[in-house]
Design a protein around this nucleic acid. Structure first.
Lengths: 111, 111
DNA sequence: CTTTGCAATCGTTAATCGACGATAAACATA
DNA sequence: TATGTTTATCGTCGATTAACGATTGCAAAG
């Protein structure tokens, strides 16, 4: 009950926050960069690139998937992760939209 | 020790993550939008616009300030908050840089 | 059909977050 | 000086996160 009040904000605000939160950990940023640069793809390779255990990497991948930024395809015994292009574009759109909002300096008195 | 391993990532990854984390809550997104649109400025006004208590809003403002996205000027008994343009530009740069990284579809086999 | 190898999930722990009310601090005004 | 207004900080509590090792689940190889 009402200890977390996320519900009380607009859907747009929640969507931005969801994506930003997924980007809010250096391990996940590093994973996304590895995937975007196609340096690796398979979960096991990511584990060797990162200073984290297999289970922790798997957990981060799950969060990135939940945020729609990454998708994973099973390929035999291994899993190939890639950037989810739709989610990636959406993220770019939302982030650019938010950060573009600033009008030219000081039409107002106070700042 | 070493329960949180943020230290083990690059400075760039940590900087992006820090900013993204600040954007990772709908209340903070809402605050930034209010400030960017100059609809309000003073902390007390923000409180009335948001479904949160004064202390909670103050806490969120503190986090946004720590991420360099917002700055506050004392104006008598009240405090005027505004977007920190330098931090805002930096955020735009970093986010755009990260999200621009994706190369054209599938040069690789797996995805 | 068993073994092997990879990835996901479970269970646990410590740390951090999100929220609040209460209190304190800073300042203007009576 | 006392009072009211505004914001920051403190203390607390429950929820969530980050991390790990251990276990489970599954597909390919033998």
């Amino acid at each position: 009950m009402a200890l977390h009040k996320r519900e009380q904000f607009t859907a747009a605000e929640q969507e931005i926050a969801l994506i930003a939160k997924a980007l809010g950990h250096p391990a996940r940023v590093a994973i996304l960069q590895l995937l975007a640069r196609r340096q690796s793809c398979v979960c096991g390779e990511l584990v060797t690139e990162l200073p984290l255990s297999q289970s922790t990497v798997s957990q981060h991948l799950k969060e990135l998937k939940a945020a729609g930024l990454v998708q994973g395809e099973v390929d035999g015994p291994r899993v190939c992760y890639c950037i989810d292009r739709a989610g990636w574009d959406r993220a770019r759109l939302l982030m650019a939209g938010l950060l573009a909002e600033l009008p030219p300096p000081a039409a107002n008195g106070c700042c």
